[in-house]
Amino acid sequence: MSENELAASKPIVLPLIDSANPEVLIFNTTAIRRLRDEYGILGVLIGTLAQYPQQNVFLSVPLKLMVWEVIWLFEQDVCVLVDWLKYCNLKKDAMNGDYKNKNLISLDKKKADTKPDFLITTNDYGEEDDWELIDQCKVTLQSYIDKYLSSPNCKTTIPQLISNYHKFKHLKNEGYFISPGLKFGGDLVIYPGDPLRYHSYSIIKFDFVDINEIIVGGRLATGVKKNMIIMESSHAKEQSSVGLDVANELFSDPTITAYSIEWAGFG
């Protein structure tokens, strides 16, 4: 097995940062590549790009993942969720106070003994994932979901989360690239290929009750050369959430029906 194949067989490390909401943020650029190239998971880059720190068009790490993307990676069984603070602290403790900081570098590589002239901050620990420590800091899907739902800002219920995830999964498994949909006032936006190259097809709305919203959405979507899609899941929503095996429910495959809406102006 070559070195690359070995790396590719390892699960992708998803750092879980416990802030106001539990956030999954990716700092490792190799992981970002793998997510995009192998699994079509886009996420959203939210960090300042250090070379061009005064613009908002090109951003950099960390890459923030949506909750549905995380669950989907769990269902594919290709990731491991890590309590990142615990992991970092363990790594620090393992050094026993002998830190040997390597953040002073010299950019002039031609001369070997030049004085370091730049102070850098790395994204993360680079390629050296410490799997022994990672095993100690694993977070299960169940406890991630529990954390997500119990955070004070979260207003989703378990049945809603399950139903929305089923809709996400349906689209993902159809091969679409998926981004959050606020730009067009929807829940998701889907692309036929990588959004770096292709325009999006459709604006996705999960829940609809108001006919006026359908008209507004359909008309807006048609105006920006897209269609609007509303989705319904056959999964019974009215289940009591007590004693529900969330992971099992999430990984089930109910029938999803999707309706495409375009604004039809007669005449």
């Binding site: 802030s19 106001a20 956030e23 939210i46 970092c88």
Partner: peptide, 25 residues
């Protein structure tokens, strides 16, 4: 004598409200 923090460690320590941080930056 101190450990130079990488960005991911600092995020884990800082525990910022990500929405607020995004607007700020």
């Amino acid at each position: 004598t101190g450990l130079a923090l990488n960005l991911s460690y600092l995020y884990a320590l800082a525990k910022v409200d990500l929405a607020q941080y995004q607007i700020y930056s």
